[in-house]
Design a protein around this nucleic acid. Structure first.
Length: 431
RNA sequence: UCCCCGAUAGCUCAAUUGGUAGAGCGAGCGGCUGUUAACCGCUAGGUUGUAGGUUCGAGCCCUACUCGGGGAGCCA
């Protein structure tokens, strides 16, 4: 068996006989005529079953066909304005593959907790289809951007021997008797990759064990991280904005119907073109103070601060040169003001917060050693990393983009948990 | 870890001042040849999260706990 007719191609079969293989999305009946809404993963079509069109047994079975029963329906594709989608299937034969049990997700409303408990089934609904198709397009666009600009895919390991950044809480696992941690970033490994290939990127899952309970956090999420040799902060920001513009515009072009189904107002996304506004940390602080927000100079921005700053702009805003004290040890200090780090955060508009974080890396051996000491990190874990500063050290920079944050923003979702097929949060490990 | 909110039928919710726990959807039975979350009639469905307390009487008031949601912090 090999399925060859799909609902998305229905127009090709106008007035012709075809077989649709799929599931019953919903059903309406009117005594001597049944309307079966069928879905096959590519779309939804209404199948019309009249009492005189099929044998008696088939007609009776349709009458009590539970939601999500699977079947193969043969009929003629008829253009009809009354049908959602413009076409309907006039059925003359049905092969019942499986009669489903009572389906838990009914056509009426459900709460998110209930739907998440049934995530394996919820994936069948049209809104989730749209979100995950946009996610697919975003990932494809990210890969296409780097693949077509000379980057080599160098994936980083998931098991790591020690904390990469020494800041966040990691998931610990037993690794044949010694401790291993699930990666929180592939960046350090990308620096090794950049010294080998010049331009590299990795794309994989990332784990954070912080007990974050917000609509912006997952414990397991996907991140794409490019790293470029012979590149400074300015070059890094140019790449970040070109990359983000490419991804957003690709999704707008390729996923119109999905964004429409999600009722996403795309006018804000259409503005995502270079150049993005670039402001320094100090300028951002001035914006907050002018806006009357209670903010202590030298701190990192909180979520409300980020929202206030990004609300001042109509496209993603790049904030650079944060205080070195609030950033990771590997960030290079600004030679013009050593209290600042050569880093950049890209804040998405509409309050979606940080989607990209990156910067120029410390490339001096002695300075890096001092920083590792200052952060109380175990020197022996960074032997190999320090080697990169011993054998042909060069200025280099990179960034990471959280895929789910990007999906959430581009789809206009209010919660990140719908942006990944099976979310992992502090309170969810199932299904 | 801290702050706020919530838990009633399979699902989504209602229940006046503390006074017999209801509706829609779903399920079951019946009706209808153009339905669009179809519609119409009937039926079944409940230890009101757990434990205790106040009261003649608690879904409602009080205490503790459990679980969940949102936010802070941390970050992408």
């Amino acid at each position: 068996m090999k399925n060859e007719s799909y609902i998305e191609d229905i127009a090709k079969y106008k007035d012709q006989q075809l077989t649709i293989s799929g599931w019953v999305y919903n059903r309406r009946s009117s005594g001597k005529i049944h309307f079966l809404m069928l879905r096959d993963g590519t779309g939804i079509i209404q199948a019309v079953v009249g009492i005189n069109d099929v044998d008696n047994e088939t007609f009776e079975k349709c009458k009590e066909l539970p939601q999500e029963s699977s079947l193969r329906v043969t009929g003629t594709a008829i253009e009809d304005k009354r049908a959602p989608g413009g076409y309907e299937l006039h059925v003359n034969k049905i092969e019942f593959t499986h009669i489903a049990d009572e389906y838990p997700i009914t056509p009426k409303e459900h709460g998110t907790t209930f739907l998440m408990d049934h995530r394996h089934l919820w994936l069948r609904s049209s809104k989730q289809h749209a979100v995950l198709r946009v996610r697919h397009e975003i990932i494809k666009a990210c890969r296409d951007y780097f693949d077509s600009n000379g980057y080599v895919l160098v994936d980083a390991p998931i098991f790591t021997p020690a904390a990469c950044e020494g800041t966040s809480t990691l998931f610990e696992t037993d690794y044949f008797g010694s401790k291993a941690y699930l990666t929180q970033s592939g960046q350090l490994y990308m620096e090794a990759g950049a010294m080998a290939f010049g331009k590299v990127y990795c794309f994989g899952p990332t784990f954070r064990a912080e007990k974050s309970k917000t609509r912006r956090h997952l414990t397991e999420f996907w991140m794409i991280e490019p790293e470029i040799a012979f590149c400074d902060l300015e070059g890094d920001m140019e790449i970040a904005e070109e990359f983000l513009e490419y991804v957003v515009q690709r999704v707008i072009e390729q996923k119109k119907s999905e964004l429409e189904l999600l009722q996403r107002d795309t006018s804000n996304l259409e503005k995502v073109h270079r150049p993005f506004p670039r402001i320094s940390y100090d300028e951002a602080v001035a914006i907050l103070k002018k806006g009357g927000l209670d903010f202590e100079d030298g701190n990192d921005f909180g979520a409300p601060d980020e929202t206030f700053i990004s609300d001042q702009f109509d496209r993603p805003v790049m904030i650079h040169r944060y205080p070195a004290a609030v950033k990771a040890f590997y960030m290079k200090n600004d030679p013009n003001d050593p209290s600042k780090a050569l880093c950049v955060d890209v804040l998405a508009p509409e309050g979606y917060g940080e989607v990209i974080g990156g910067g120029q890396r410390e490339d001096d051996f002695d300075t890096l050693i001092k920083k590792i000491q200052q952060h109380n990190l175990p020197m022996e874990a960074f032997d190999w990393y320090l080697d990169l500063r011993k054998y042909g050290s060069v200025p280099h920079a990179g960034f990471g983009m959280g895929i789910e944050r990007a999906v959430s923003w581009i789809c206009g979702l209010k919660h990140i948990r719908e942006t990944i097929p099976f979310p992992r949060t502090i309170s969810r490990l199932q299904p």
